[in-house]
Computed example of a mutant assay.
Amino acid sequence: MAGIKGLIALAFLGSVGMTFLVLACALPQFNNWWPLFVIVFYILAPFPTIISRRFNDDMGSSNACKELCIFITTGIVISSFGLPILLARSPREQPVIEWGACGLILSGNIVVFLTILGVFMVFDNDEVDYSMW
């Protein structure tokens, strides 16, 4: 039963993070859909870890593969935080997005990436019985 509560909590956190992102785009004072490009980083972030786990299961334990996975994932996460800051700063006269929208995107990034981390922590446990889902 604890697995279902964790799954519900992760689904709630994911929806809160995406709500922050949509609010950054859709509020009348912001009204700009450029921040939705951050979703690409949300989709790409888990792939290196998933590929690394699959590769490590087949070939034995390799620290180089795991370290490369962490490096690529870190680059993706930092890029997702850098994109809204870059959009809010340039060009200086007429920025692409407002700083309020940038703040909403950054808070949404924190929530979504903590949710992705939570998914890996909850489902990494080998004692979880997947047949109950």
Rank of each mutant, 00 (worst) to 15 (best):
W99L: 11
V122N: 04
P46E: 01
F81I: 05
F30T: 06
I8P: 05
R53E: 13
W99P: 06
L87S: 00
W34Q: 08
S107V: 15
M121F: 09
L83G: 00
I50P: 12
S80I: 04
K66Y: 09
S90K: 05
L36N: 01
C69V: 00
L87N: 03
F20D: 10
I116G: 03
V112G: 00
G6I: 05
T73F: 08
S61N: 12
I76A: 04
F81V: 06
E93H: 00
V77L: 13
N109D: 09
T74W: 13
A45P: 10
R53T: 10
F123C: 06
P95V: 06
V111R: 01
G103Q: 07
F55G: 00
F12D: 08
V112Y: 00
T49M: 10
G75T: 02
A45W: 09
S80R: 07
L86S: 06
E93S: 01
W99I: 09
L104N: 03
A45M: 09
P84T: 04
I8N: 08
W33N: 12
A9Q: 07
I39P: 11
F71G: 07
F37M: 15
T115K: 02
V40F: 07
P48V: 00
K66P: 05
S107I: 15
T49F: 11
G3S: 13
F37Q: 15
I51K: 13
S61T: 13
I78V: 14
A24H: 03
G82I: 02
V16Q: 02
N125F: 07
A26Y: 00
Q29L: 12
G82A: 14
I39S: 07
F55M: 06
I78G: 03
S62V: 10
F47G: 02
G108A: 07
